[in-house]
Amino acid sequence: MSIMEYNGGSVIAMVGKDCVAIASDLRLGNQALSISSNFQKVFPVTDRIYVGLPGLGTDVTTLRERFRYRINMYTIKEEREIEPETFAHLVSSTLYEHRFGPYFIEPVIAGLSKTPSGGVKPLIAAADLIGCLNFAKDFVVAGTASTKLLGVAEGLWEPDLEPEDLFETISQTLLNSVDRDAFSGWGAVVHVITKDSIISRTLKGRMD
C-alpha cells in the first residue's frame, strides 16, 4: 500500500499554441472504495496560472491553502501577480522545506507568462514530492495513472495545437488513461487557459 496511491487521482497539463490546458479526474477514494466524485485537485493561483495537486487528499487541501497564503503575501507585497516560472520555484521550495517528511503530492503547474511585446508564453511544469522541477515543452503528467497518461499523450500530442484542438487532445488523453486505472476517474474536468479567457469544462466519462 503506497501512500501516493491511497486516495488515487491523476493530473495532466499540455502546451498548445499560445495556450495551455490542465486537466484532472475528480475521484477521491479510500484505497479501493470510492468516496467522492467531486474532489477538486486543480486550483487557480492567478488569472493565468493553475496548479494541479494529485496525491494524498489531505495534503491536496493543505498545500492548496499554503500556496494561497504565500501567493496572497507575494501579491500584496510585490503589488503584482506572480509569474508562472516564479510560482513553479515557489512550489519547489515549499516541497523541499519538508525534504525529510514530505507532502505526498506531485504538483503539476500550467500557466501563461507575459512577454515584453504583450504576447503570452505558455509554461508547464511538474515536480516530484520533494520539489524536483521538470519544465517540459510538450506535456507533464502525475498521479496514479501517470504511466498511462504518458503513453497516450506521447501518441496523441503534437505541437502548436489551437485551444479547441488542445482541449480535444488533452480530454482524450485523460479519459482513455484513467479508464485503465482503477484509482483514477469518476469524473473529469479540463481548463484551457488562453490570453483572454479560461474555459473550464466537465467531461462526460465512465463513472466506474
Binding site: K148, G151, V152, L156, Q172, N176, D179, R180
Partner: peptide, 19 residues
C-alpha cells in the same frame, strides 16, 4: 514493460473509446 503506456492508446484508436 510499456503495456500501461500503449494499451490506453489502443483503446482510443482501435476501440474508439471515449469518442
Amino acid at each position: 514493460a510499456a503495456q500501461s503506456l500503449v494499451q490506453p492508446f489502443l483503446d482510443n484508436q482501435i476501440y474508439f473509446k471515449n469518442q
